[in-house]
Amino acid sequence: MKAPGGRAPGDSPLDGEALRMIRQRSLFMARRLGYPVDVSLPLLTDRGVLRDKDEVVDRMLALDAVIACASGMPPEIASDWVSEIGITGSLSPSEARVLEGRAEDVPAGLLDRMEALWALGWASSLFRALDYARICGPELAMIFGELDDARDVRALRKRSRLRRHEEVLSACDLARCLHRGVEIAARKRMSLPGKVQPNVILERRKALEWLLGEEEWDEVFVGA
């Protein structure tokens, strides 16, 4: 039986030829989006990992809590909500410091986490598209701004369904290629490529790298 959104038990990771085909599509799409490309960028390694759906939902809820703090919610209220829905243990150390009020200031960059949340929401089939020519859409607030209690969270878990492994891996590979394009532009002092700010690419890439890896959230490396 095939696990929803993942790969069938015992399936092997994608081979080199499949990964090269994914890369060719990524380079084609990067060029169409206006980014310079690096054909020597190492291929994404398929480690055969795709997180469990409940772990992904917990990560989305943790992101939702810190985004709320960055939007003005008092940390103690966000902390109470996290405790009520039972995901305190899913907070990363940096997120826990924010919700415990131990961060001197709520980092402004936390608002960028909306793009990471959008990427994970897309991977969970909550959003139809992960369009790298656009920022996250109003659907983000429509779904995550209405989670009042544990009953709403249970409904979200039931609604979420992870996409196929190869689909997620392809989106991550494209994010890597776009990230490299941003770096090339910066190095050559070119105008910023694409139609979105670089933080959109970086946040989405971090979320997808986390989804396909085994690192803790605060430890995910997004260097090209």
Rank of each mutant, 00 (worst) to 15 (best):
E215V: 13
R25I: 15
V49R: 07
A78L: 01
A96W: 06
W217S: 15
T88N: 03
R164G: 08
L162F: 03
P75L: 10
L19P: 10
V196A: 01
D149L: 02
A30L: 06
F144E: 00
R187W: 04
P107H: 11
L14D: 03
P138E: 09
K53P: 01
R163I: 00
A119M: 08
S79N: 06
R180P: 07
R47M: 03
K53W: 00
G137M: 11
M29G: 04
V57P: 03
L162K: 02
D112A: 15
D11H: 09
V49S: 04
E166R: 09
D105W: 09
R159N: 07
A175F: 05
Q24R: 13
E166F: 03
R23V: 12
R161D: 04
A70I: 07
V98L: 03
A207F: 00
L211A: 14
R59G: 10
V66L: 04
R163Q: 01
R151G: 14
L50P: 00
R25S: 13
A185V: 11
E84T: 14
P93A: 13
A171T: 12
F144M: 02
L208E: 05
L110C: 05
L61Q: 05
P75Q: 11
K206H: 15
A62E: 12
R20M: 06
L63W: 08
C136M: 06
A129M: 08
E146W: 06
R97E: 12
S83L: 11
L147I: 07
G86Y: 12
V56M: 03
V200A: 06
K206L: 15
G34E: 07
L33E: 04
R32E: 05
Y132F: 13
R164T: 11
L156V: 10
I22H: 03
G121N: 09
G16V: 15
L140W: 04
Y35M: 04
V200R: 05
E216S: 15
S124F: 04
D218L: 08
G6R: 14
G101A: 13
W217Y: 08
R113L: 12
M29F: 10
L27V: 14
P193T: 09
L14I: 08
A119D: 01
L126K: 04
V37Q: 11
D131F: 00
A175E: 09
R47S: 13
V82P: 05
M142S: 14
L212W: 00
S125L: 13
C136Q: 05
D149H: 08
E115K: 10
W81E: 12
D80N: 14
S71F: 03
L50R: 05
L169D: 00
R32N: 07
L178S: 08
G89Y: 10
G121F: 08
I201V: 14
L192H: 04
G145N: 06
L147K: 00
M190I: 14
L211T: 08
V182P: 00
Y132S: 01
L169A: 14
D80G: 15
K158Y: 07
L156N: 02
Q24V: 15
V37R: 09
A185S: 12
L117T: 07
L14V: 03
Y35I: 01
A78P: 03
L50T: 13
E167M: 08
Y35T: 01
H165N: 00
A103N: 11
E100W: 04
E100Q: 07
R97W: 05
G137W: 10
Q197K: 11
I77H: 02
P75T: 15
N199S: 15
V39D: 04
